[in-house]
Design a protein around this nucleic acid. Structure first.
Length: 622
RNA sequence: GCCCCUGUGGUGAAAUGGAUAUCAUCCCUGCCUUCGAAGCAGUUGUUCCAGGUUCGAAUCCUGGCGGGGGCACCA
């Protein structure tokens, strides 16, 4: 009995640890809400330009519905810096688009404006010409002023978002299947933060459930302490796989597993001790992978923490009449809600289920953090579960009106057209993928620059190899399935992070050369009026830089990191064209040279920041 | 059976209902005594099918066809 007490307190001890980490986060959020210093989104040039357009449209049409007006970049064959699309406004005002457009063009041409010079009409498109020098100056000085903070904003200032991502299962190695949740979630956390959110990054570990019954059963039957000591995760995985193979022929062991889980849930001390041990072993393993990928969390709570509360909530929901108890067993059923099929909240043997624990988690998140948004970055195959969870949460009032809960689904990584599975042994371990990618980039690095010192080589290979994997995933749109292909995963050609890293390094190198030739460069002395450009490509680059804050905002709004990727590729491409036609080193005019330095400095900062939002690093040389 | 996602050059992908659908890769042609050729410039080739809505559709709607996933004691 004494031993029991001791073991039980192990679970209690774990709960205290959780509470402590929660307090730390609460404290941080509180401070952030009070003291965080934001960059005003309205101070960005694209916003100013938009306002100018709205102003002139408001005056020339005498209408207030100017938010229907949108500024875009025209296709390349059109001359004009920006275009105004009037179609939506025309529809709203019930006027012919070309007539409305004509009025707007006339309006613009009659007014004197700060940034906009004039406008011309093509069909129903309004093409706008800006005061290029002025705009160019303003964009670059804004970037120089903000430095590495360029791009952040206060759009969502004061709001709190909890982002649930990664969520690996204990006792299994992280496979490439978990890669997507992990890096999409991390990227979203960074992107949300850039737009002003206070972000809580929560790793909702899969550390509870019937799978532990399976694992414990397998451990008791076939476990080998020596092998566990040597390579814990491999051994645990093998045990898990063995259980499932064995259960194919002996289905009755599944009942044993369920029974073991039920005992675990009743905090059987022996089983809790095993559970805790497996959990700790796994966490060490995960930590290693996260470190490589640059992934960080504020909380790693996991399902186990919510098992008791889950039980209470199920009773509460039963009381509220949202679900009902089965007559002949302990099972609790939620009947069809609207279009959603019915589901179970408690098993026949009385133990908890995924959805009940998630319901408790939801309530916890709402109550503990006063959050505005809760994001679940989990594969699309769980869509129905989340619909059910959110609906029940709303009805039970655990998820109030003002709090948004979103399932950020994503497609699966398929191998030979099929889902990968730990049980069937078709899973590719993330660590293998990373090490292959790193060694491949090392090979290429050696071929390209054989004289790099070995330490430097390893460092850069790591940056490039890891970056390639992350980028390959994030650049694709979330919802689609990805076919796993070693060659494609390890592709280090164009359209990859390497292209961006290379562009960054190239700028670095230019800066070095400039320093050698002209000494230390102090752009602080560059007056706004001294900034100038000569070539179209310079202006195009600045225009692209101008869009960065908007791209971040759009990526946040749509939960789509791939917009950042597309943007960075366009930016790098413009830079490389510019690089090819213009030499900064040989620019005689000092002011022009310094303007160009400011320009590429901006490009390099934006590339670095954009990549860092995806937790991809940049090497200084490669 | 019902529900969700998805279909874009040979291949892999991009595109708030907007102008001549973009990028990478492969093939081909140029560009390194000039800030790094992992680059730049050029060339060939693409929206599953049939209807519909719209001034305008890869995008929205309806119906097919193909691929993936989900639909109570797994998570």
């Amino acid at each position: 009995m004494e031993i029991n007490q001791q073991k039980q307190s192990e679970f209690e001890k774990y709960k205290l640890e959780v509470i402590e980490s929660v307090n730390t986060v609460q404290e941080r959020i509180r401070k952030e809400k009070e003291h965080r210093d934001y960059v005003d989104f309205g101070s960005y040039l694209s916003v100013k330009l938009q306002k100018e357009v709205e102003e002139v449209v408001r005056e020339s049409l005498g209408t207030q519905d100017v938010e229907e007006i949108e500024l875009s970049v025209p296709p390349s064959h059109i001359s004009g810096d920006f275009a105004i699309e009037v179609f939506r406004l025309a529809k709203k005002l019930d006027e012919k688009p070309n007539i409305l457009a004509k009025k707007i063009v006339d309006g613009i041409n009659e007014h004197r404006m700060d940034l906009i010079k004039d406008a011309s009409l093509v069909g129903a498109f309004v093409n706008v010409e800006t005061h290029k020098e002025k705009l160019y100056q303003e964009i670059l000085s804004k970037i120089l002023e903000l430095g590495e903070r360029y791009g952040e904003s206060n759009i969502n200032a004061g709001k709190v978002a909890i982002i649930d991502y990664s969520a690996p299962n204990i006792a299994k190695p992280i496979g490439v299947g978990h890669l997507r949740s992990t890096i999409i979630g991390q990227a979203l956390a960074n992107i949300y933060r850039e737009t002003g959110y206070s972000v809580i990054r929560d790793n909702h570990l899969g550390d509870w459930g019937t799978q532990f019954g399976s694992l414990i059963y397998a451990y008791k039957e076939w476990g080998d302490e020596k092998r566990i000591a040597e390579n814990p995760l491999v051994e645990l995985k093998d045990l898990y796989v063995k259980f499932h193979q064995f259960s194919e022929e002996h289905p009755e062991v599944k009942d044993n597993a369920r029974e073991l889980f039920a005992r675990l849930e009743k905090k059987d001390p022996e089983l809790v001790a095993l559970w805790k041990r497996f959990r700790d072993l796994s966490l060490e393993d995960f930590e290693r992978v996260y470190k490589k990928l640059g992934i960080e969390f504020d909380l790693s709570i996991g399902e186990s923490y919510f098992t008791e509360q889950a039980d209470k909530l199920v009773d509460e929901c039963t009381g509220k009449g949202l679900c009902r108890k089965d007559e002949s067993s302990e099972a609790v059923i939620v009947d069809q809600m609207g279009d959603l099929p019915s589901f179970l909240l408690r098993k026949q043997d009385g133990s908890s289920l995924y959805l009940s624990r998630d319901l408790a988690t939801l309530q916890f998140r709402v109550n503990t953090f006063d959050s505005d948004s809760i994001l679940y970055v989990v594969g699309s195959e769980q869509e129905l579960n989340f619909k059910q969870l959110f609906e029940l949460g709303r009805r039970a009032d655990y998820l109030p009106e003002g709090v948004e809960a979103k399932h950020i689904g994503f497609g699966m990584i398929l191998r030979d057209g099929k889902k990968m599975s730990t049980r069937k042994g078709t899973l590719i371990e993330l660590e293998d993928l990373i090490s292959q990618s790193v060694s491949k980039s090392k090979e290429i690095l050696l071929a390209k620059s054989p004289n790099t010192d070995p330490q430097e080589l390893d460092k850069v290979a790591e940056i490039v190899g890891v970056g390639a994997i992350i980028y390959n995933d994030l650049r694709q749109s979330r919802t689609k399935n990805i076919s796993f292909d070693w060659d494609k995963m390890l592709d280090l050609e164009g359209g990859s992070a390497v292209y961006l890293q290379y562009s960054y390094v190239r700028i670095n190198s230019i800066m070095e050369k400039l320093k050698e030739a002209f000494g230390e460069i102090d752009l602080g002395k560059l007056e706004m009026n001294d900034i100038s450009f000569v070539n179209k490509s310079e202006f195009e680059l600045a225009k692209k830089l101008m869009a960065f804050p908007d791209v971040i905002a759009k990526a946040q709004e749509t939960d789509s990191p791939n917009y950042i990727c597309g943007y960075l590729e366009e930016l790098a491409s413009l830079f490389n064209s510019f690089y090819n036609e213009t030499s900064i080193l040989r620019t005689e005019d000092v002011k022009l040279r310094e303007s160009r330095i400011a320009l590429i400095k901006g490009v390099s900062m934006v590339i670095k920041k954009g990549l860092s939002m995806m937790s991809i690093k940049v090497p200084e040389k490669m």
